[in-house]
Write a protein that binds this DNA or RNA. Structure first.
Length: 161
DNA sequence: GCCAACGTTGGC
DNA sequence: GCCAACGTTGGC
């Protein structure tokens, strides 16, 4: 059972297309390796900065109303993404060397569904959240840091006290 | 479905 | 090391 570390110094946001993998899927699975991230900056954060127990906002992208839907947490230390060596996977990377894997991930675990989801439009209209990369036009990072106080603010907005 | 913005690739 | 071409992300 994974829980958020109340003393965590850093929170995060991860994006997922719900048609591909939704927060409900994560709740069903309990936890899941965060596979398929193929962006070096995002990889570096997983490899170097994400700590077990860090809070995570789970965001649904590529839908009519993109929104933060749930709370999750980092549930493992970093390790190589197994899909990079799986020829059957859409994430297979022929250039990755098993002796020095290119793609590193952590496990993400579901914590709770937000009673009230928070649409991107609301994040953009709130001065406390409108500096998040996800609210910036053109930002395609699928994973990025969120200041811990902003995380708590978003939880409050979402109906969690 | 469109397209702007961005990251990556590869030729030179 | 530059930069044009390309592929992908993701809002709309």
């Amino acid at each position: 059972m994974s829980a958020i570390n109340p003393n965590a110094k850093q929170a995060w946001l991860v994006k997922s297309e719900p048609d591909d993998y939704s927060f409900a899927d994560l709740q069903r699975d309990g936890a899941s390796p965060w596979t398929g991230v193929r962006n070096y900056q995002a990889r570096n954060w997983m490899r170097d900065s994400m700590c077990i127990g860090d809070p995570v906002l789970f965001y649904h992208s590529n839908i009519p109303t993109p929104e933060v839907v749930g709370i999750a947490t980092v549930a493992s230390t970093p390790y190589p993404d197994p899909t990079q060596f799986d020829q059957a996977s859409e994430y297979f990377d022929p250039k990755s060397d098993p002796n020095g894997p290119r793609w590193i991930l952590v496990d993400i675990a579901a914590v709770e569904l937000l009673p009230k989801t928070i649409p991107l439009s609301v994040l953009r209209n709130d001065p406390k959240t409108n500096t998040l990369p996800t609210t910036q036009r053109g930002t395609r990072l699928s994973l990025h840091p969120v200041p811990i106080e902003v995380f708590h603010h978003i939880c409050n907005q979402g109906g969690i006290s």
